[in-house]
Design a protein around this nucleic acid. Sequence first.
DNA 1: CTTGACCAGTGTACGCCGTACACCTATGCT
DNA 2: AGCATAGGTGTACGGCGTACACTGGTCAAG
Lengths: 227, 227
Amino acid sequence: MTRQEAAHTHRIPLNRDRVLRAAVALADATGIDALSMRRLAQELDVVPMALYKHVANKEELLDGMVDTVVGEIDPPATGPDWQRVVRGRILSARRVLLCHPWAARVIESRTGPTPAVLAYLDSMAGSFRDGGLSADLTHHVMHAMGSRLLGFSQELFDASGPSGPPDPGLAAHYPHIAELAATAAHDGSSTVGGGCDDQFEFEFALDLLLDGFEGLRRQGWTSARKA
Amino acid sequence: MTRQEAAHTHRIPLNRDRVLRAAVALADATGIDALSMRRLAQELDVVPMALYKHVANKEELLDGMVDTVVGEIDPPATGPDWQRVVRGRILSARRVLLCHPWAARVIESRTGPTPAVLAYLDSMAGSFRDGGLSADLTHHVMHAMGSRLLGFSQELFDASGPSGPPDPGLAAHYPHIAELAATAAHDGSSTVGGGCDDQFEFEFALDLLLDGFEGLRRQGWTSARKA
DNA sequence: CTTGACCAGTGTACGCCGTACACCTATGCT
DNA sequence: AGCATAGGTGTACGGCGTACACTGGTCAAG
């Protein structure tokens, strides 16, 4: 067990997959802003340039990270009730994205779709089609769901800061927001703290949209273009 | 007209507002990634550090830019039809955000709300309340609208690249997406090219949501929490 | 057994970034 | 006249992504 042998044993050859996993873990642990090629290399006990044998550049690294997390989303369930199927899948996507808070922003920042995202969207479209929606309606429905399809949209921010008591200055300047904050505060939601129940909000919007889609489907909606 | 006088005349004293406007213009012209303090300073014929007399740092510059563009959104119209009012305002926001394609991402990247965004959201909540929605419903409705409230969400990407003919390889791997692309291609929408009519998609989703909200309002919806 | 191609990993270097800090210099108040 | 202040300057530092030339180890062909 010379030093050389030790080096051999503890150094798994560092393939692309290991790089991506380490990058995801690092982003999870320290935030996406702290993810640099240099820090990542350090984490892998390697010199920065070594990474470039496995990813072309940082953009491709980010693409790979996106594919890695999107690959964690459950495959679609099977069943006759398309709304159930879609709902379950989207909530799975949401769960995954909530585990990797950086992922939503990174996905949005990609200039083109990555394969895993494409596959996800494709199977989602398939679920709509299997549920009896026309291709036309499915198309518009996918657009309507927007980023909600991918389970994120935690919304911009909470409007109320992390602090506890309602800011009196805020109430003076933004009365309606203050009112909403008050509403959120004193209904006994699952989040004991000041905030509102994100999960409830998410499902509220999701169900509203799904109900809307079902209504359109039942009435045989088709995109009536004005010439 | 010594050189000194010339310097005096052509150098308007560079206040915060001029900095923000120049930053917005530069981001519009060259993209948000090309906006650096150094490039911005150069644009203003000034040394980089001069900017720091007017903005604390780059984050605050971005905050200011957000407030600048959000300030361009039309004030809310008045009228008895709340859906009309809200719809018009949101479409105004969308118009503004489409003029500054970088703005959506920057807004999402802010850690806290900026004053202009807060004011915008507040007056939007006011429109819902004036329309007869309860504070409770308004709260959830604001969440449901999500980023659509701010008029963006051009959606992740177009799924079909900028190229013309449908990629046969894509069709093989992602049949449903290919089907949607075909649907979008041969209905004679306003965009003659391959893409779909973003404006139509946006209004489709918007109206679906607004109709859903109106239904809830009419039936006196209230958030029925399961304890 | 030698040779040479081919990797994965290294080391150095460049140009860009945000910005801390010390410095000027004109302006305007006392 | 004296002086504080505000706005613009110059220099410098540490971090970033990554181009490019290299090295040592593996392995097939001669």
